[in-house]
C-alpha cells in the first residue's frame, strides 16, 4: 500500500507562502490593538519595528466601492487615507517603494492627467519633480532640496470624513490640527505607508517607511499628504499656502 501511495499521481503545487502571508497581513490589520512597545523587538530591527509597533498609516485611495470597504476594516478613514494600528509589524517595508505605474512629467501635463486640481504650496514653489501614478489616481510633488531636506506631497481625489475622524484623535502620535479652517491630521515619526489599489487591496511592494513627520489634510476636491523632516508649524505653513 505504501509503495502504491508513492506512485499515486498528485499534481504539483506552487509556493503558497506569499498568498498566505498576504492574507494574514490583511487579517492582522483588521484586528484592533492597543499599541504596545515590545522592547525585545527593538534590538533586532529598531528602525522600522519600533515605528510600526507604534503606528501604521495607510494611504488608501478611492476606497468608495462597497467591496473595498468589506476588505478593509477602517480604524480611520480620512480624506482618502486610512490609518491602521498594529500590534507588531508584518513585513519590513522597503526604504523606497514605487506606486503602481509611476510616470514623471511636467506639472502642466500632470494637471491634464488627473481628475482633481493639483495644489502647489506657495512656500515651496514649483516642485522639482512631478510624478503621476496609477493612471492619474495620484499626483506626487517632489521637492528634492528644501531647507528641510526632501519633501513629498501626494495628492489624490478625496474628501473629509469628520465622523471617522472623531473616533481617532485619541491615538498617540496622531493629533488633530486645523488647516485653512478644516481638520487635518499631524502624525509624528515614521510609519508604514501603503498604497491601496482600486479594488481595495494593498499594492504589492508599495509599502514603505515614511520619513520625518506627516501632515494629512484635504479640501473639497483633493486630499493631500505632506511628508518630510518638518516641524508642525512649518508643515502647517506649507499646507496653508497650497493653492
Amino acid at each position: 500500500m505504501r509503495a502504491l501511495g508513492r506512485e499515486l499521481d498528485v499534481p504539483p503545487t506552487g509556493d503558497l507562502t506569499a498568498a498566505v502571508l498576504q492574507r494574514l497581513e490583511g487579517r492582522a490589520v483588521r484586528r484592533r490593538h492597543i499599541p504596545t512597545l515590545r522592547t525585545g523587538a527593538f534590538r533586532r530591527r529598531p528602525s522600522w519595528r519600533a515605528a510600526l509597533v507604534v503606528f501604521v498609516a495607510v494611504l488608501a485611495l478611492l476606497i468608495a466601492t462597497p467591496q473595498g470597504r468589506a476588505v478593509i476594516k477602517h480604524v480611520l478613514r480620512f480624506a482618502g487615507i486610512e490609518l491602521r494600528q498594529e500590534p507588531s509589524p508584518v513585513r519590513p517595508p522597503e526604504s523606497s517603494a514605487p506606486l503602481p505605474g509611476e510616470r514623471r512629467m511636467s506639472l502642466e501635463k500632470a494637471r491634464r492627467q488627473v481628475s482633481f486640481p493639483i495644489l502647489v504650496p506657495a512656500t515651496l514653489g514649483r516642485p522639482g519633480e512631478v510624478v503621476v501614478s496609477d493612471n492619474g489616481r495620484v499626483a506626487s510633488l517632489i521637492y528634492l532640496r528644501t531647507p528641510y531636506g526632501k519633501v513629498l506631497i501626494d495628492e489624490f481625489a478625496g474628501h473629509l470624513d469628520p465622523v471617522y475622524f472623531q473616533k481617532f484623535v485619541h491615538f498617540g502620535d496622531v493629533t488633530q490640527v486645523e488647516v485653512n479652517g478644516k481638520k487635518g491630521l499631524w502624525i509624528t515619526g515614521p510609519h508604514v505607508l501603503m498604497y491601496i489599489t482600486r479594488d481595495g487591496k494593498p499594492a504589492t511592494a508599495s509599502a514603505r517607511l515614511t520619513v520625518g513627520n506627516t501632515l494629512i489634510w484635504g479640501t473639497q476636491h483633493v486630499a493631500l499628504r505632506l511628508e518630510g523632516k518638518l516641524g508642525k508649524r512649518t508643515a502647517l505653513g506649507i499646507a496653508d499656502s497650497a493653492r
Binding site: 503558497l16 507562502t17 498566505v20 502571508l21 494574514l24 497581513e25 507588531s88 508584518v90 513585513r91
Partner: peptide
C-alpha cells in the same frame, strides 16, 4: 506576530 516565521512553516 512574526509572520515571516509563519512563512517558514507554510
Amino acid at each position: 506576530g512574526d509572520l515571516d516565521a509563519y512563512g517558514v512553516l507554510v
